[in-house]
Computed example of a mutant assay.
Amino acid sequence: MTQNFDFDAMLDKIKDRQWALADIDWDAPGAELISPELHAKLKPFMSDLMWIENVGARGFAAMARKAPTETLRDIYRHFHAEEQKHANAELALMRRWGMLENDEIPQPNVNVKLIIDWLDKYSDQTPLAVLGTVIPMLEVALDGALVKFIVDEIDDPVCQEVFKRINADESRHLAVDFEVIELLGHAKMRKIIVETVGAWMHPSLIIGTLRYIPLLNKMRDNIVAMGVDEERLYTAMKRFRKVGERTPFPNRLPMYRFISWHGSVVINRDHPYHYLADSMVTLTAKYPKRLLRAQPTWSKELTYEPVA
């Protein structure tokens, strides 16, 4: 492990800071503070956020199987549960705000469905060096842009309490994520090269990349449409790049370099890359539903019930 980071102490902190939906008073006043205009925009925004949390949960479950130590495995198992809890809390907020009918669970958009399908098929065989760089990028976008936007824009005190807890969890996730990236960069270059070449020779990574590209562009457009300042998203993405500025080790990882570069072009609307990415968003929107597999059981573990 890296010299200055105590993973055992982090695990103790994670265990000590656990919370449950039952800790929140979901019937407290404040739901009426959501304006009709914001209410209309918020449902698809919250739905996307909820499903990305669900995707993150599955990613951490896969990472737990590949973690090099029992401590890190335990951390990832906790992160898996926390991401699922975040998704459930966001679902409970949608229900509180009257966005859902009865026991309705909003459906993921096609880009998220394609990622869910990929995770179900391939995540358990994907190297930690891949998942360990992709998942942090998604979390940076969540923590640095989406969550902070909600905290700034929504006055409902229950929402504020929920996202204060979520934000604290995500901060710990990112602290571990960034340390693991550095840890992976300490490997011998021969090992890094062999693992990278092996990963890219497997069709699953190509398929995953072709699904990841339109997902991130779709997320970016949805975020901007919601009113999130693009500068906030830019600042969040820069946080990921700064990991490579702390020490030289992250930049030894080809996947870190690729994800970092990709994040920089996603937020630059003038980059020619967007001709490709936007075309892929359009194409995936027309993806035949009959070709989509049934959602796996792990993606159906959403509940608004305030269980302990």
Rank of each mutant, 00 (worst) to 15 (best):
T2K: 13
N4M: 09
D8Y: 12
D8A: 15
A9N: 10
M10T: 10
K15N: 13
Q18D: 14
W19G: 00
L21I: 04
A22C: 06
I24C: 05
A28V: 07
E32H: 09
L33F: 10
I34D: 07
L38K: 14
H39R: 14
H39I: 04
A40C: 04
K43E: 11
K43N: 02
M46E: 07
L49E: 09
W51F: 05
V55L: 15
R58W: 15
G59K: 01
G59S: 06
F60K: 09
K66G: 01
A67I: 06
L72T: 04
I75E: 03
Y76E: 11
H78C: 11
H80T: 10
E83Y: 03
E83A: 01
A87W: 03
N88C: 11
A92P: 04
M94S: 01
M94A: 01
G98R: 05
M99T: 04
L100R: 03
E101S: 10
N102Y: 12
N102I: 06
N102E: 15
P106I: 00
Q107D: 14
N111F: 10
N111I: 03
I116W: 11
I116P: 02
I116R: 14
D117Q: 15
L119D: 09
D120K: 10
K121I: 05
K121V: 03
Q125S: 11
A129G: 01
V130F: 06
A141M: 14
G144M: 02
L146C: 13
F149I: 00
I150S: 08
D152F: 04
D155F: 08
D156R: 07
Q160K: 15
E161P: 00
F163Q: 05
K164D: 15
N167D: 15
A168D: 14
E170T: 02
V176H: 06
F178K: 07
E179N: 11
E179F: 02
E182N: 11
L184K: 04
G185M: 04
E195R: 13
E195S: 12
A199L: 02
A199H: 01
M201L: 13
I207G: 05
I207W: 10
G208C: 03
T209Q: 13
L210W: 11
Y212D: 06
I213V: 10
L215G: 00
K218S: 10
A225D: 13
V228K: 05
V228T: 03
E230N: 12
E230D: 13
L233N: 07
M237D: 10
F240D: 02
V243I: 13
E245W: 11
R246G: 06
R252P: 00
M255V: 08
M255D: 06
R257T: 04
R257G: 00
G263S: 08
V266M: 15
R269C: 07
R269P: 02
H271V: 01
H271W: 09
H274A: 02
Y287C: 00
P288V: 01
K289P: 00
K289C: 05
R290V: 09
L292I: 06
R293Y: 11
A294L: 11
P296C: 12
T297P: 08
T297K: 15
S299P: 03
K300V: 08
E301D: 12
E301I: 05
L302P: 02
T303A: 08
